[in-house]
Simulated scan of single mutants.
Amino acid sequence: MRNQRLYFDHPAHVVSVAVAFPVISIIFVSLRFWARKVQKQPLKADDWLIVLATLLTVGLGITQLYGVYTGALAYPTQIPPGYTGRVSGLHTTQLIIKSQIEWAYAQMFVLALGCIKASFLFFYMRVFAIEKKSFVSKLLTGLIIFEAVWTAALYLSVLFECGHRFWFIWSSDDEYTTHCIRTHPRYFTLCIIDIITDIAIISIPIPLVLRLNLSRSRKIAVSSVFLLGGGSFFASLIRFVMTAGNLVGGNNITYDNIIGATGSAYWATVECGVGVMAACLPTVQFVIRKRFTEWSACNRKDGFGSRSTDPGGHVAHSNRSAEVAFAKMDTCPNLPASLVYPASIWTEESIGKENFAWDERILDMTR
């Protein structure tokens, strides 16, 4: 037995997460689409996948709200008066709804995770896979195929965990364990693969950035943009602890079936919400920063001296060894040459094949 209530054992906390993360996800995706419009970028697979992930995150929030409303989540298991059997043999309305919610959010969670990770990978295809036959392009394509196959396999295993006899999913625990596939190995596998793929997705851009001819501080600045996706890693790590039923602050969340399901649903929503935000941040933060810089530069009376004489233009720069392209876009006469987010180069008809010397002004991400 536990000594005190955990945060996700409080209905108010569960409701807060169920509302906050879907809403924040919608806001970030809206900003992402605004950024694409500002950059004059076409909407591609990475954008549409994150939209689907957001819709699924909203679905996770709705299932949690319904669970709290019906008392099937965030409340201890209710034992009927006079019941003397084992808890695993209970088959009450509360437990039926809990099992139905658990089955629904498990399906949405698997699909949402797959969409988020695939969105990251397709985004990297925009940025780094300039040449279709390059090693980076082949690596990302392979990871996308793996993620698609893994997501499909896991989704089907959740959907048909009791074969075609779906009613056993919301039967008593005794009947479920007799007729259905054990869920613990599957969830442990999901958590482990999830953490491994998170690490891979976070790590992919770093070696490419480190190969650029930049100062150490500039490399750190560029790398930090891509490391924003690390937030979802910590959420998945915490969810792994929840699912594994390890002690958290001296309390085991699996002491009660409903509380255990609530903890898993709670952190599933957190992970998906953080994942959506992390996938949108690299695009959104650059456009916001660039707009603010342009506004500040255009409103400065003294300008930037001799560096502000460019009439405004659009020049592409590429580094074939790193397979990364950058562009110079001056939209304000008083604004010095600045880095355009690598994805912006996608609108160029041709970026050229020669190696350009890196321009310190173009690669200054700290402005």
Rank of each mutant, 00 (worst) to 15 (best):
L95T: 07
V14K: 02
Q41N: 12
L55I: 13
V225A: 14
G305C: 10
V19R: 12
A343L: 06
V127A: 06
S232R: 10
T77A: 11
R289V: 00
S308E: 11
V15D: 04
W150N: 13
R239T: 03
D174C: 01
G82R: 11
S223N: 09
P81S: 08
S25F: 01
L143K: 08
V58T: 12
L335G: 02
Y105M: 08
W295K: 14
F234G: 09
R218F: 06
P333C: 07
E323G: 15
P342V: 07
S215H: 03
A327V: 14
L121K: 10
V315P: 03
Y124F: 15
F21K: 09
T151F: 03
A153L: 15
D174V: 08
V29G: 04
S296F: 08
W167G: 15
Y266G: 13
P81G: 02
Q39S: 04
N257Q: 13
F168D: 08
F240R: 04
K117Y: 11
V136L: 06
I79D: 02
L156E: 11
V19W: 11
M108Q: 11
Q285P: 01
A45Y: 03
S171N: 13
K133I: 00
S217E: 14
F234R: 05
L6Y: 03
T54W: 06
V29P: 05
D330L: 15
F356R: 14
P336T: 06
N257R: 14
S344K: 12
Q41H: 11
A106Y: 06
P11V: 02
V248R: 15
C332L: 03
V38E: 04
I204W: 07
G305I: 10
G245L: 02
I96A: 01
F233S: 06
S99W: 10
V87W: 00
